[in-house]
C-alpha cells in the first residue's frame, strides 16, 4: 500500500502543543489525526511495515492510503 498522492500529512509547526493533520489537497478535506496515525503515515511513506489494522482501516476509509 502507499499514500494516495492527493493527501498530505503534517505536524503543525510553530506551536507548543502537538497537532497533526491529514489533508486532501484536491478536495479540501482536513482531518485532525493522532500522533499514532501520523507515525503510521510516516512509516507507510518510508515503506516500513505497519501492524495497526485499526489505523490502516480508517486511513483506507478516508482514502488516504491505496493499494500499490
Amino acid at each position: 500500500m502507499k499514500i494516495n498522492k492527493a493527501f498530505r500529512f503534517l505536524q503543525e509547526p510553530y506551536i507548543l502543543e502537538e497537532r497533526f493533520w491529514l489533508v486532501n489537497i484536491e478536495e479540501g478535506d482536513v482531518f485532525k489525526i493522532s500522533k499514532k496515525t501520523f507515525q503510521c503515515l510516516q512509516s507507510i511513506n518510508n515503506c516500513i511495515s505497519v501492524n495497526n489494522d485499526d489505523i490502516i482501516d480508517s486511513l483506507r476509509e478516508m482514502g488516504a492510503i491505496v493499494d500499490d
Binding site: 509547526p13 489533508v23 486532501n24 489537497i25 478536495e27 479540501g28
Partner: peptide, 14 residues
C-alpha cells in the same frame, strides 16, 4: 492546488 499551498506552506503556518 490552493488547498495544498494553504495547508502545507510553512510560512502560512507560522
Amino acid at each position: 492546488t490552493f488547498f495544498e499551498i494553504w495547508y502545507t506552506s510553512d510560512l502560512l503556518w507560522k
